[in-house]
Amino acid sequence: MLTLNGESPAARYSAEVSLSLFARLHGQFGMNEVVENDLEEVFEDCRNENWDGAEAEAVSWDTYNLAKNFLLAFPRGTPIPSIGAEPDGSITAEWASTRYRTLSVSVTPNGELCYAALIDDRTDSGREIFCGFVPARIKQLIREVVT
């Protein structure tokens, strides 16, 4: 069946699916989904002490909110990270293209962004305060690990 503008519903659906896949691959809508799905799941699973069975600290509501704001502060097109947690109650976001090109950012319970990167034979690390925007150093490291 043809529509008034000459596109069939199937063709339009196909184009929408392609666009959605493209957008997901290129991070256009990815960060919202990461927050709604991955971050939410990590928080639900780690909000009580001993979530790892090895005496881990609970991930607090404040840490969850800070991680959410941190992730949503990234511009469109940013590759999506893998979300996790650490035993001190930090939430982690990891960007990686290979095992030797990895950046891990911890959103810590005291409100800091603590990061370490491995880029081939080079390492980098540091600590930043999150003030509502993503620190330039972290953006730069993401570019380095994913390209």
Partner: peptide
């Protein structure tokens, strides 16, 4: 130091 822990863990 957490950054140092993370560097070791990454390696």
């Amino acid at each position: 130091n957490k950054e140092e822990q993370k560097k070791i863990a990454l390696a």
